[in-house]
């Protein structure tokens, strides 16, 4: 027999999200995704499937991407989290990935975009000069139902070029 909702387990945790420390008291069953959205008001992280398939809720945990619907908030106690809200510069200038997504029409409804951007931040750090098949493989954990991926692939390749030579504007 499961616990009754009245008897839920709680814990105080401390997480650093996009450089800012938050101390929150959470139910231990609360997912990291719901903690970010409902407790910290960071609604840029989207929830699609809530079972780890769609990739929309992807965030960076201590620099590594993870599905925030498949982590408990208590597991992030002491961790550094980066969400889509944190990938632009502090002065508000867009990340090269965001600029490239804007210019290449790499989003339509935008629901999947946050998870794709966070996933590609990690991917381009590891592989700064990918070819198209590598980009498509790296995108395979993120589902987009609008674009057909064409613009997304072009945007990631263009962002990789911009990150390699920061002074160069869009090359397409």
């Amino acid at each position: 027999m499961s616990m009754t909702p009245e008897a839920t387990d709680r814990r105080s945790i401390s997480v650093t999200v996009n450089g800012q420390r938050h101390d929150v008291d959470v139910e231990t069953r609360l997912t990291l995704a719901d903690c970010l959205r409902h407790r910290l008001g960071l609604t840029g992280t989207h929830l699609g499937c809530e079972h780890g398939v769609c990739g929309a809720c992807t965030v960076l945990v201590n620099g590594n991407t993870a599905r925030s619907c498949l982590m408990l908030a208590v597991q992030a106690d002491g961790a550094e989290i980066a969400t889509v809200e944190g990938i632009a510069s502090e002065n508000g200038e867009w990340h090269p990935l965001q600029k490239a997504f804007h210019e290449h029409h790499a989003l339509q409804c935008g629901f999947c975009t946050a998870g794709i951007l966070t996933s590609m931040v990690e991917f381009l750090q590891e592989n700064p000069d990918p070819d198209e098949p590598e980009v498509r493989e790296a995108l395979s954990g993120n589902i987009c139902r609008c674009t057909g991926y064409q613009g997304i692939v072009q945007a990631v390749l263009d962002a990789a070029r911009r990150l390699r030579s920061p002074n160069q504007e869009s090359s397409s």
Binding site: S2, M3, V74
Partner: peptide, 11 residues
């Protein structure tokens, strides 16, 4: 879809 309530331990 949310996890059911449980007691949590992190030894």
């Amino acid at each position: 879809m949310k996890p059911p309530p449980f007691h949590y331990y992190d030894p």
